[in-house]
C-alpha cells in the first residue's frame, strides 16, 4: 500500500535539476512522477522512480543528499470532480497532509495523487473505507 519516494536536497542552484535527471537517465532509471518544493534558499525534489535503490545509490555517488520516505498513491478516476472527491474526504476525516502532488498515468485515463500524511496507517484505512483505490507500489513503479 505504501510507495517509496526519493527526496533529494537541492541547493538553490540552477542546473541541479537537469543534473539529477541526467544522472537517472544514464542509469536507465525512469521517473514516474516528480515535484519540487522550494523556498528562497533551497529546495526539495521529490521523485517516484521505477528503481528506488539504484536511484538512491546513483545520486549519493554524485554527492547529493538523498532520503527515502513512504507515501501513498491514490488513484482518481478521470472525471469531473474526481480530485475534489479525494480532497473532500481527506478533509472530512481530518487527515493531516504533509504534502501532495499529482500526475496522470501514461494512458491518460486516471490521475494519481501522491500523499504524505502524518499518520499514514490511519490515512490508508480511512481512504479505503471510503472507497478510494490505493495503488500497490509495484503498480506505481510500473505506471
Amino acid at each position: 500500500m505504501r510507495v517509496e519516494q526519493i527526496a533529494v536536497f537541492l541547493e538553490n542552484k540552477s542546473g541541479r535539476l537537469a543534473e539529477i535527471t541526467s544522472i537517472l537517465a544514464e542509469n536507465n532509471i525512469n521517473i514516474r512522477a516528480l515535484a519540487v518544493a522550494d523556498t528562497a534558499d533551497f529546495g526539495i525534489l521529490r521523485l517516484i522512480v521505477d528503481k528506488v535503490d539504484e536511484a538512491e545509490t546513483a545520486l549519493k555517488e554524485k554527492g547529493f543528499t538523498v532520503g527515502k520516505t513512504m507515501v501513498i498513491a491514490v488513484e482518481v478516476p478521470d472525471r469531473t470532480g474526481g480530485l475534489a472527491e479525494v480532497l473532500d474526504c481527506v478533509q472530512k476525516i481530518g487527515l493531516n497532509v504533509e504534502y501532495m502532488y499529482a500526475f496522470v498515468n501514461k494512458t491518460g485515463e486516471n490521475a494519481v495523487l501522491i500523499f504524505r500524511f502524518d499518520d499514514m496507517t490511519r490515512a490508508i484505512n480511512s481512504l479505503q473505507e471510503n472507497g478510494f483505490t490505493i495503488l500497490e507500489s509495484s503498480q506505481v513503479y510500473n505506471l
Partner: peptide
C-alpha cells in the same frame, strides 16, 4: 552541509 542524517523531505523541517 546537509548530511543524510539531517535531511528531511519536508521544507518545514529544514527551515
Amino acid at each position: 552541509e546537509v548530511s543524510d542524517s539531517l535531511f528531511t523531505d519536508e521544507i518545514k523541517g529544514l527551515e
